[in-house]
């Protein structure tokens, strides 16, 4: 298995599996060997990591204030019962 080289085109399709820890030991080794010698793929891996980090800085849509107020009122009513 490991004598067959991974191409860049193949590598970009398993990068998530690599980051998720889903590759077998042999596959992981092949992946890492490629990244050591291929600066394009090393950059690609960094870019994916940076994408993940930037996503972590996004804020997402929240409930409207009125809904939160109504929910708190419902919680109070329930407590009183």
């Amino acid at each position: 298995m490991s004598d067959q080289q991974l191409t860049c085109e193949e590598l970009v399709e398993i990068v998530t599996e690599y980051l998720e820890g889903g590759l077998s030991d042999a596959e992981r080794e092949r992946f890492e060997e490629h990244v050591v010698v291929c600066s394009g793929c090393a950059n690609y891996l960094d870019q994916i990591r940076m994408t993940i980090e930037l996503a972590g800085r996004v804020t997402i849509d929240d409930l409207m204030e009125e809904t939160k107020i109504e929910l708190l009122a419902a919680f109070r009513d329930w407590r009183r019962e």
Partner: peptide
Amino acid sequence: AAVDPDRFLDAGRWAGHWTSAPSRW
């Protein structure tokens, strides 16, 4: 495809390798 297939060479000894490699951000 995760990356546009045009970004890779499609024939020869280097098939499947970058034509224009990702840059360092």
